[in-house]
């Protein structure tokens, strides 16, 4: 039964917690402790805004084990406002077609369950079309 692998990633999965390089200010997600830009140590927590845009997307029709119940689902490369790109599903598309450049925002959703109905639920980030907020006087 797979537990610790998901548990230790909860900050990343629930809230897009990454890092900011104290040397060159590069924002890093997923956290990697060595700044990809300046190659110095980077261990300062930084929580991302969750806003971004779609860079590429496709529909998974042949899902891996554990994802059968969700297929077909849209998986996208999302570029966060702060720079990094992440791999994530798009959700709550409803009748909207995804497109390159689509503005999206992070939501926390069920990714899958481990070992069916008896196992734990893995929650994590997905992205949805940005909620339209009515213009108010």
């Amino acid at each position: 039964m797979e537990l610790a692998r998901h548990w230790r990633l909860k900050k990343q999965r629930y809230a897009l917690q990454g890092e900011v390089c104290p040397h060159c200010q590069t924002k890093i997600f997923p956290p990697r402790d060595i700044c990809p830009a300046c190659k110095q140590e980077a261990r300062t927590d930084h929580t991302f805004s969750g806003r971004g845009k779609v860079v590429a997307f496709t529909v998974v029709t042949q899902p891996p084990k554990g994802y059968e119940a969700q297929a077909p689902y849209v998986v996208a490369l999302v570029e966060l406002e702060e720079g990094p790109r992440v791999t994530a599903q798009l959700t709550d598309l409803g009748d909207e077609e995804p497109y390159i450049g689509m503005p999206v925002e992070m939501v926390t959703r069920k990714l899958r369950t481990v070992e069916g109905e008896r196992g734990i639920i893995v929650y994590g980030y997905k992205f949805r079309p940005r909620l339209t907020v009515a213009q108010r006087a």
Binding site: P30, V60, L111
Partner: peptide, 14 residues
Amino acid sequence: DADYEAEPGLTPAA
């Protein structure tokens, strides 16, 4: 990357 690519449901084909 099991934690950051496969877990969100990505496959090599996708």
